[in-house]
């Protein structure tokens, strides 16, 4: 009886999607980003126009997850640190990063918190501009970042041309992010 109770006590807690999940590795965050992008593509390609708003939302989320993956790769403490510990440490930069990682959806600020990514996107955009490209990577990224703010909350149906533009912008940004991060 006692042995049975001891076994019961040792049983691992049931894993549920509703449990608060903390990714321990940056690769996990990027994998979730890939899955959300696949979901977005599914809704975009196979769904009716009624599903396009969700496609846009999920595609934007995929970019957010990749940027957060980049942050976690550079700052592994983000997965295990607690707000209380960071506050008692009094390191402001860590608190700011924690806030950005766990609470922010601002794609520009997330990009800016990874100085290597920021300088690389600027460098590539300058050379694209000099090569006469119609839109630089910086412009494409900013269009994803700004449009996301508006589209995420709208009750208005996204149109064919909007969803096409947004999905192609996200595709370009994600391709670049994958090359940079992996």
């Amino acid at each position: 009886m006692e042995e049975a109770m001891s076994r019961k006590r040792k049983r691992r807690p049931k894993v549920s999607v509703f449990n608060r999940f903390r990714p321990s590795r940056w690769q996990q965050v990027c994998t979730v980003g890939d899955r959300r992008y696949d979901d977005a593509l599914f809704l975009y390609r196979r769904g009716t126009s009624a599903r396009w708003n969700s496609a846009v939302y999920l595609a934007g989320l995929a970019v957010e997850l990749y940027l957060k993956g980049a942050l976690l790769k550079t700052h592994p403490f983000l997965s295990s640190a607690s707000l209380g510990t960071l506050r008692s440490e009094g390191t402001e930069w860590k608190l700011n990063l924690y806030d950005l990682f766990w609470r922010s959806h601002d794609l520009t600020e997330l990009m800016s918190a990874s100085p290597d990514l920021l300088s690389e996107i600027e460098r590539e955009s300058l050379s694209m501009h000099r090569a006469g490209r119609k839109a630089t990577l910086w412009e494409t990224f900013m269009r994803v970042a700004s449009w996301n703010v508006a589209v995420r909350y709208t009750t208005v149906q996204v149109t064919r041309s909007e969803v096409d533009t947004f999905m192609s912008s996200v595709k370009e940004v994600l391709k670049w992010l994958r090359e940079q991060i992996h």
Partner: peptide, 9 residues
């Protein structure tokens, strides 16, 4: 090009 990089969203 340099000025455009000072513009975010």
């Amino acid at each position: 090009a340099e000025e455009l990089l000072k513009v975010t969203i």
